[in-house]
Design a protein around this nucleic acid. Structure first.
Length: 376
RNA sequence: GGGGGGAUACCAAAGUGGCCAACUGGGGCAGACUGUAAAUCUGCUGGCGAACGCCUUCGUAGGUUCGAAUCCUGCUCCCCCCA
């Protein structure tokens, strides 16, 4: 068994655990910084490890396949070696690009035909070849190819889309058995639940996925524009069906409040571009609330970025200085913003883990959710 | 001393009788961002007002005209060339 739950909350469905990979253990709940093209934008690997203690990061099959390409990846000896990162990596399969690059692709039962957003070249992604690509990348957790159903979707379309994802899952699982890791470490394969915002579809999908008995399971197609309440409702339905003893990964979520609520509903793993993208654009999640560091009111505020923050940037630079960097369009500004936000996210999820273990999670979560949505 | 060109909002710059409170950039102010085609995108930026709108503006003082940033005259200032 690769996943071990070490604590279960009595008041909520939250739990803590450890997922063991050949690149090290992942304590859950966990937030995974997004490093789409073999880089968590603006952040050194050294800072991810030494400063903010990231345990696992993401890469992306579609993006890395197009550039630098699999020839380079083979020569490099896989993504870990290529990017000098020897901790766990999860690679998304390209399912999200089916959603976000919808104008550039066509779907059928076999897979997805993509037109490269870089040079217009055509590529065909299948449930099978995205496994091959992820074998070449050597990620610790490979994701199944899915269709991330857009919101809103009519019931019939959502059902068809879900069924496509299921059929791709079966093909992927069949192919998985005929492949092996190229670099001597074990690679998990996570299937993905779809079903849009329809209760019964989510139940069907969760049951379908659960039955495959994979080492972990993912929930996709959420945080794509639906009301937050709908997301929580779907999560509750799905987590009620997914095996309790396997990690549950909510893909692409979300705001700090979203993550805490999802933890309370029994979710273990999260990734989101929000800390890096928003941090790069001047929006900071701090222990006191959300701030837009570009705002004029910070121009002569020489207090630390976040005196309760957990990155060296929080204890080194003032708000006034960081605002100056943003206003002056200095690249250090977005770098500091990104690192700060990542540190906040990682702290938040670590703190949730501690509170669960201390039996204090529910009240703490309530307090935090309120604080986290405050703009200051 | 002679000749020529110019003065538009915070800056630069378009506009040369009505469609002009005035294009566009920059700057400024604010907002968005959820498995990253994003270090990106959007809105506002004379005053008052939520808005219809009203009021004051294109160096300055007059004038022509139903109507002037735009045409005419005086003045002030700036730039270029010749002496």
């Amino acid at each position: 068994m690769h996943f071990k739950i070490d604590h279960t909350d009595t008041e909520t469905s939250a739990r803590t655990g450890v997922l063991k990979t050949d690149h090290g253990p992942i304590e859950t709940p966990v937030f995974m910084p997004v490093g789409t093209v073999a880089s968590v934008k603006g952040i050194h690997q050294r800072d991810l490890i030494n400063d903010i203690h990231a345990r696992i990061i993401l890469g992306n099959t579609y993006h890395l396949f197009l550039r630098p390409g699999m020839d380079i990846m083979k020569k490099a000896g896989g993504l870990h070696a290529f990017m000098a990162w020897d901790k766990p990596i999860l690679t998304d399969s390209g399912g999200y690009q089916i959603f976000s690059l919808a104008e550039n692709r066509k779907l059928n039962a076999e897979g997805a035909e993509f037109r490269s957003h870089i040079d217009g070249s055509k590529h065909f992604f299948t449930p099978e070849n995205v496994i091959d690509i992820q074998r070449t990348l050597g990620s610790d957790i490979m994701m199944a190819l899915d269709e991330c159903t857009p919101y809103p979707s009519e019931y019939k379309l959502a059902k068809t889309s879900m069924e496509l994802t299921h059929s791709w899952l079966d093909k992927g699982l069949k192919h998985l058995k005929n492949t092996a890791s190229l670099y001597g470490h074990h690679q998990f394969y996570f299937p993905i639940v779809q079903g849009s915002t329809y209760n019964d579809l989510r139940k069907i999908s969760a049951a379908y996925v659960a039955e495959k008995n994979c080492e972990g399971n993912a929930i996709g197609g959420l945080s794509v524009g639906e009301p937050t309440e709908d997301m929580y409702e779907m999560l509750e339905v799905v987590n009620g069906i997914l095996p309790i003893d396997k990690p549950r990964y909510l893909m692409g979520v979300g705001t700090p409040a979203n993550i805490l609520e999802a933890i309370a509903l029994g979710t273990d793993m999260f990734d989101c571009v929000m800390p890096t993208r928003n941090g790069r654009n001047g929006m900071l999640f701090t222990s006191e609330g959300i701030i837009n560091i570009r705002n004029e009111k910070w121009k002569d505020d020489f207090t630390l970025i976040d005196e309760n923050g957990h990155s060296f940037v929080d204890r080194t630079y003032s708000k006034a200085y960081l605002r100056h960097l943003f206003v002056s369009k200095e690249m250090l500004g977005p770098q500091i913003g990104s690192l700060h936000n990542l540190a906040f996210y990682l702290w938040l999820v670590d703190e949730a883990r501690r509170k669960i273990q201390e039996g204090l999670f529910k009240d703490w979560k309530k307090e935090m959710v309120l604080k986290l949505s405050t703009r200051i």
